[in-house]
Design a protein around this nucleic acid. Structure first.
Length: 479
RNA sequence: GGCGGCGUACCCAAGUGGCAAGGGAGCAGUCUGCAAAACUGCCAUCCAGCGGUUCGAAUCCGCUCGCCGCCUCCA
């Protein structure tokens, strides 16, 4: 079956056909690096990570660029507040972003350009726009004339005249029209500046993405992604200036936009003070739980982060890894990969069909957990009947897990790795827990269940759950 | 005001014409010294409401109600 993608430009699901057979070019708007990344950034990153993984899995040769906006008003403000240069701020938060991405298991894009490394190209595109009559210089600034292209507004569905009457007018004497936006800004003293035909200055916000796309991917790209909020004005302006500069339409063939993350039903915003950073969440929950939460609804819908949502996801993740662990210890033969070739393809098809339908990750997760239940049932039944015929079926189930893990970037750890990661969040040191477990085991041997239960309750109060089995006692943190 | 979206069980959520996936929580059973985990069973005759189309709709159409996003920096 072919891949269908919802295209914001046409507002329809369309069959995905790249312009060059077998090759895909994809650009996603990355962060403005002036503060720590929040779970909204995580959602965008995870959503497009899955798109990237799946396209590769389908056999496309994907060139994927995600930028860093490292010159911008907010960065400058932060730098001034701290009394350092904007480079210092940018470098610090690029590092922080990269660390967050790594923790989230995001695959590295092919290119990760910075705006400040693309200045030559930005100037070149701006010059072209002036030459083509779409932009004008005014007191060292260069503006793009929004009214000159008749199809302005095609992505966001905006009408220029309505925009103007409703818009808060940006008071700027240099502009011919309030809707015009800056391609190049004359720099004030103390701001980062580059030489240009219009004097010292720095790029505007929208132009960098156009320039980076052209530089790394070409004049018409296959996929352009970003958060829903970027549709207007950012992506609208990108389209206008790129198409005006190159004369080629469309600038991007498929536009993908991920939905927002709300916090307890409210929009995340600085004024509400409810911004949740990725690093904060990962202090309490594993990255797989966060990814599972983000992927358990469709990437275009809004999702609501609540106190319980990550707990639920963590419990689900634990259920998954418990099952894998059980298969590996009770049925080690089934972990042999050569069984994969014999696998029946029905479940695979269900997973591919789901992903082909605009990346229905929730459906894939549903399929995985169906197999989790099936695996456990199979092992229980085998245990009851004393038969050992489930090896092939379990191997097949593991293959389904493996397939899903490649696409979603979850379900891919060794169980021990996952539990170590999870248990590293325990409130007391592991050695202390181990010591108490030894004491409790001794007490249980002596049938001193009162003391044994005391220890268990004591640990439970600290968020540690004990599990007794024939092989001894293990512990885990409460999610 | 303009544009777009949403409303499925206690919570989250998939399903977009053929008799409601999955996760979490809860209850009961098996197991256990007791628990925990795991498994089994139960948990939406119904998909905001009202009409219509159809042999048949949560899925299509119309209306009503409720919620949300964008139009300004924002993932």
């Amino acid at each position: 079956m072919s891949l269908k993608i919802y295209n914001s430009l046409t507002r329809k699901k369309e069959e995905f056909v790249p312009q060059a057979e077998g090759k895909v070019t994809m650009y996603v708007c990355g962060p403005t690096v002036y503060s720590l990344s929040h779970i909204g950034h995580a959602r965008s990153a995870v959503s497009f990570d899955v798109v990237y993984r799946y396209l590769k899995y389908k056999g496309f040769d994907v060139t994927y660029a995600r930028n860093y906006t490292d010159v911008d008003d907010k960065i400058i403000k932060r730098a001034n507040d701290e009394g350092v240069t904007s480079e210092v701020i940018a470098e610090r938060y690029i590092k922080a972003f990269d660390d967050d991405m790594e923790a989230l298991g995001i695959e590295l894009p092919t290119h990760r350009p910075k705006a400040t490394e693309t200045i030559d190209r930005i100037i070149e595109v701006t010059q072209t726009l002036i030459k083509n009559g779409y932009a004008y210089e005014s007191n060292g600034d260069v503006f793009y004339s929004v009214r000159l292209k008749k199809d302005y507004g095609k992505l966001s569905g905006k009408n220029i005249d309505e925009l103007e009457s409703g818009a808060r007018v940006d008071v700027n004497e240099s502009k011919k029209d309030p809707l015009d936006f800056a391609l190049w800004k004359a720099s004030k003293p103390g701001e980062p500046a580059w030489d240009s035909p219009w004097g010292k200055g720095r790029p505007g916000w929208h132009i960098e993405c156009s320039a980076m796309c052209m530089q790394w991917l070409g004049t018409t790209i296959d996929i352009h992604g970003g958060g829903k909020d970027l549709i207007f004005p950012h992506h609208e302006n990108e389209i206008a200036q790129s198409e005006a500069a190159t004369g080629k339409t469309p600038y991007a063939r498929y536009w993908l936009h991920n939905g927002f993350v709300n916090i307890e039903k409210e929009k995340m915003s600085k004024s509400l003070g409810n911004i949740l950073n990725i690093s904060e969440v990962l202090k309490d929950y594993t990255s797989e739980a966060l990814r599972l939460f983000l992927l358990s609804s469709q990437y275009r819908s809004p999702i609501d982060y609540t106190r319980d949502s990550l707990k639920d996801a963590e419990s689900a993740m634990e259920r998954f890894y418990k099952t894998v662990q059980r298969i590996e210890t009770e049925w080690p033969d089934s972990t042999s990969v050569e069984f994969c070739v014999q696998c029946n393809q029905d479940k695979y098809k269900a997973i591919f069909d789901a992903m082909d339908d605009d990346f229905n990750t929730a459906e894939v997760i549903g399929q995985v957990f169906k197999e989790v239940t099936r695996a456990n049932k199979l092992m229980d039944e085998a245990k009851a009947s004393g038969k050992k015929e489930g090896t092939l079926e379990l191997a097949y189930i593991l293959c389904v897990f493996n397939l899903a893990s490649k696409m979603l970037g979850i379900f891919c750890k060794k169980p021990a790795e996952y539990f170590n990661d999870k248990n590293s969040r325990s409130s007391i040191p592991a050695e202390e827990i181990e010591k108490l477990i030894v004491e409790r085991t001794e007490a249980r041997k002596n049938k001193n269940f009162k003391r044994a239960d005391e220890i268990r309750d004591e640990l439970l109060a600290k968020g540690i759950i004990l599990e007794d089995s024939a092989k001894g006692t293990t512990w885990t943190t409460k999610s």
